[in-house]
Nucleic acid binder design. Structure first.
Lengths: 216, 216
DNA sequence: TGTACATCAGTGAACGCGCGTTCACTGATGTAC
DNA sequence: TGTACATCAGTGAACGCGCGTTCACTGATGTAC
């Protein structure tokens, strides 16, 4: 009423909101039941409460929306990892706390992770490839990070990548477990303990590494 | 012509074949492009070369067919593992050879694994749950097997399960890599080396296990 | 500040299409006598 | 061995439905003067 600057932008804001609402409706519907390529344009617009043709004002087709969902999902994940990377290094229970943070984060963003898990091998090739590219990127970043640790700074790039791949496989396994139970209040402590142990077991192997494998 | 016993059964055989052909067509179409719930009954019957209504002579709905595909996929996998379990124990390069066998097997049965990978988080709840149940079963069997090794026979059931879970996560990661490259003649040797190293790294950690984690 | 014009998000009718499912049918095979 | 009947996999027409996409439209907001 008395806010000219705000009402000034109402129309544009609404359009931005619709665009975002379309993505959120897609996430919601995927989480609720379907896979992305079992999802119809009309379902999405119906969920948002606009007419089907409005969809085309924002995306040329479903695939574009899907690719943007991949970007959304990884953008937030990258932010988490960036913060984690900058946090004070090497407290005693660093592993435990990292796992806790990660699991909490997955639960807070379950629809994004649900989407990634479902579409990583889903029916739309372009989306699969985009996800795969991002995961590979994450893996090589993790490999670089690992190389900075004293125990690992003599390792070859290949071996660092191998270890990063194993850690990511383990974490994907954990993500899957988190997703199985959809309740937000679910007690994840058992899950966190197992994940922590798995990472610890991997790390325990590192001092002994190359004692034998280096010969073949 | 001169084989009465065989022509005797032609009709029945044909029906068995159609039933199987429906499942194979579904696998083929899923491998080619779609996810299961983006797949239509008509596509499947079209692929087989029968009229859509024929489908109902064999399955009440698509979900039943999907569940049978899960059974098919795990039945063959179980057979592989059974053979592996009975094979002569403890040769020096046991890990390497197990990984080789496994990767070769995944390639030979890629459509089944493609199906499992795609539907493990796919849009059909009943199928997801069936797959999850089977994987959990596999994990507990592996945990039992692990407990028979000298290094591990003092481990708690929880810890054996933790380790089995980690190994399965690693192998699922490997399966995914195999599936990315669809060519049957693809050279998997690099992949096999990485998988072997990952398992070796896990095993290297086992002697040191419990030196510290047991206290918390 | 006021007016005239451009932009563009959202509308609603309409289209042709492939879908799952029903139904009554056909005709080959299996079974009883 | 021959005949009469039951079974049942596969057929083909028909149905109503939700789909993606087109089109000309409306009307609020932003911009130029």
């Amino acid at each position: 009423m008395g806010r000219p600057q705000k009402t000034h932008r109402t129309r544009r804001e609404k359009s931005v909101n619709t665009r975002q609402a379309l993505r959120e409706a897609a996430l919601e519907l995927i989480d609720r039941d379907n896979s992305f390529d079992g999802l119809s344009l009309r379902e999405i617009t119906r969920e948002v409460g606009v007419v089907p043709t409005t969809f085309y004002r924002h995306y040329p087709d479903m695939e574009s929306l899907g690719l943007e969902l991949v970007d959304d999902s990884f953008r937030t994940l990258r932010e988490l990892l960036k913060v984690a990377r900058q946090s004070p290094v090497e407290t005693d229970d660093r592993i435990r706390r990292s796992v806790e943070t990660f699991v909490t984060y997955v639960r807070a963003n379950r629809r994004h992770f649900q989407f990634l898990a479902r579409e990583r091998f889903g029916g739309v090739a372009a989306i699969r490839e985009e996800i795969r590219t991002e995961v590979r990127l994450l893996q090589s970043e993790l490999a670089t990070d690992l190389g900075r640790f004293p125990v690992l700074n003599k390792w070859s790039t290949d071996d660092l990548n191998m270890m990063a791949g194993l850690m990511i496989s383990a974490m994907i396994g954990i993500v899957e477990q988190v997703l199985v139970n959809r309740r937000r209040e679910h007690d994840d402590s058992a899950l966190i303990k197992v994940a922590e142990k798995q990472l610890r077991l991997i790390l325990l192997g590192t001092p002994a590494w190359r004692s034998k494998p280096v010969t073949d």
